Every structure is written in C-alpha cells, then in structure tokens.
Amino acid sequence: MKYAYFPGCSLKGLGRAYEESLLPVLRHLGVELQELDDWNCCGATAYMSVDENRAAVLASRNLALAEKNGSTELLAPCSACYLVLNKLQHHITEFPDLRSTVQTALQRAGLAYSGTVRVRHPLDILVHEIGLDVIREKVIRPLRGLKVAPYYGCQIVRPYATFDDAHQPTTMDRLLTTLGAEVVPYPLKTKCCGGSLTGTVPEAGLRLSYILLKEALRRGAHVVATVCPLCHFNLDAYHEEMERRWGPVRIPTVYFTQLMGLAFGLEPQQLGLHRNLVPFTFPIETTAA
C-alpha cells in the first residue's frame, strides 16, 4: 500500500511524537508513505474565521500538489488538517463560486485540482484497508492489563462522518482491543478538549480538558489514547494548573499509534514516548486500593 502523506505543521513541531510513532507503525504493516514535496500549512480551523476564500485556497494547494504527483489518496493524521482538507473537498463541490475562486488562484500558481484526491485518516486506513486481522498478526507484545480511554476529539468525525459514526465512533476502540488492551466505556470520546481556548480563555479551556481527564480516571483508565496533536497537548501539558484549580487529575495521554508501536514490540524511544510531560510506561504498575 502506498499513500501520499501530508504531515501538517503539528507533526513537525509539538506533535512530533505522533509522526515518530506513526511512521514506524505503518512501515511495520507494509504501508509506504510519500511525503508531499513543498506542502504548506492547511490554515487549521482558525484561518477560516479570518478569510474563508483564502483559507480554501491555502488548503487546496496541498490537494493540487498531491493530484499533480499522481496520488489518489492523501493521508492526513492531524485532526485539524484532516477536517480542513475534507471540508474543502465538500465545499468546492457544493459551492460553485468558491470552486471558481480556488481554481483561479491555483492556475496562477501553475496548479489545478479536479477533485480526484481522497483525504484519508490513519484510523480509516488501519481498520478498513489493512484490517484488524492483519494488525492482530503483527502483535507480539499484547497490551494485556492496560485500560484505555479512547478519545477521538471533535474534528475527525464531525461534521463529516466519513469513516465512523459522528457521535459514537468505534474504530479506535476496535483497534485497541485488537492490540490486547481493555477499552473502558468512555462517553466523552467526542467531547471538545477546549482546543485553542486553553491559550485564549484558560478558565474555559482548562475546565473542558479537566472534565475529560477526570472522567477517564473515574472509568478506571490507566491512559487516554488520542488522535489529535492539539488534544494531546491540552490533556498532557496542564496537569499542574488543573490540579491547582480543581484537584488531582493526573493520567497520561498518548497517541494511539504509540500504543500500536508498543504492541508491535517497538521501543518507547522509537515512538516518542519520552516526550510526554506525564510519563507513561507499560506494563502498568498498579497499586491495590
């Protein structure tokens, strides 16, 4: 299997542990990624509120580059990147004026986009293309005894439930179970973590993250698994501030790809686990109540 790969800004910065774990895990499964040459920031979700047309043009350049290279499927691991590129494809189909604006701008840069590139998320490819049976065969160190709260965030299944249910997604649940982990019931799996509010309106943003962590602990989870660099940052970086405001809530947050890597027998250092602010180790050492 071969896919064009759009890492986005986060996987080259604060979310580099996501890329550090994603790439070896996919190689282990026989998936080849070709990173887009000269890719640019997708604009995330903020630029759309500044100038929707320019935001669309910015994102469309990446799809045009993928199409120019002959790619039909583009892997976008970051939740914001996945949402922006997915939304763009819908919007240029639904709104002719926006499509015209995008095409005019791309033509000035010597590019064009005809809509042939399909934006994919790693969970979609892992579960629906590679398959859980194949993944199960690659597990040499099952995550037995590990209780995981699967946290999807609010962007990869809404507003477009392209590969999973918008309110009760299960792809990560099934994947983690295949790795041998115990998935705890986690009803907040698509509730917002606060996003950028942690930096702009801290009281609101931190409270949303605190609620997610508190519920994971209440459900008996040892760790929260996520798919989003911003969600990971919010849930990993502010424990001291949350505990100062509302009380103990310490629990590690990792990328689902890091848990996959551990189950495949890869070393923690290969998977970026040393970058966590709240340390995570497996096997889990538990203390009797």
Score class of each variant (00 low, 15 high):
residue 1 M to F: 08
residue 6 F to S: 02
residue 9 C to F: 09
residue 20 E to L: 03
residue 22 L to C: 05
residue 22 L to E: 00
residue 25 V to L: 07
residue 31 V to P: 06
residue 34 Q to P: 01
residue 35 E to G: 09
residue 42 C to N: 01
residue 42 C to L: 05
residue 48 M to F: 04
residue 48 M to V: 12
residue 53 N to S: 09
residue 56 A to M: 00
residue 56 A to Y: 00
residue 63 L to G: 04
residue 64 A to Q: 13
residue 64 A to D: 03
residue 66 A to N: 03
residue 71 S to C: 07
residue 72 T to V: 10
residue 73 E to G: 02
residue 73 E to T: 10
residue 78 C to S: 14
residue 79 S to G: 05
residue 83 L to Y: 15
residue 87 K to F: 11
residue 87 K to C: 10
residue 90 H to W: 10
residue 99 R to D: 11
residue 100 S to Y: 03
residue 105 A to F: 03
residue 105 A to C: 01
residue 107 Q to P: 06
residue 108 R to I: 07
residue 108 R to V: 04
residue 110 G to A: 00
residue 110 G to W: 01
residue 113 Y to D: 06
residue 115 G to D: 01
residue 115 G to H: 14
residue 116 T to V: 05
residue 116 T to W: 00
residue 129 E to G: 00
residue 136 R to Y: 09
residue 137 E to R: 15
residue 137 E to W: 00
residue 141 R to V: 15
residue 163 F to K: 11
residue 168 Q to E: 06
residue 169 P to T: 04
residue 172 M to N: 13
residue 174 R to P: 04
residue 178 T to Q: 05
residue 181 A to W: 11
residue 183 V to L: 10
residue 184 V to I: 02
residue 185 P to H: 10
residue 185 P to T: 09
residue 185 P to N: 08
residue 186 Y to L: 13
residue 191 K to L: 14
residue 192 C to M: 07
residue 194 G to Q: 03
residue 209 S to K: 00
residue 218 R to Y: 04
residue 223 V to T: 09
residue 225 A to L: 04
residue 228 C to S: 02
residue 230 L to K: 14
residue 231 C to V: 12
residue 233 F to R: 05
residue 234 N to K: 10
residue 234 N to T: 06
residue 242 M to Q: 15
residue 244 R to G: 11
residue 244 R to V: 02
residue 246 W to T: 02
residue 249 V to M: 12
residue 255 Y to L: 14
residue 258 Q to W: 10
residue 260 M to K: 09
residue 261 G to F: 02
residue 274 H to R: 10
residue 275 R to P: 08
residue 277 L to V: 08
residue 280 F to N: 08
residue 282 F to E: 08
residue 283 P to K: 05
residue 284 I to E: 07
residue 286 T to M: 14
residue 288 A to T: 13
residue 289 A to N: 07
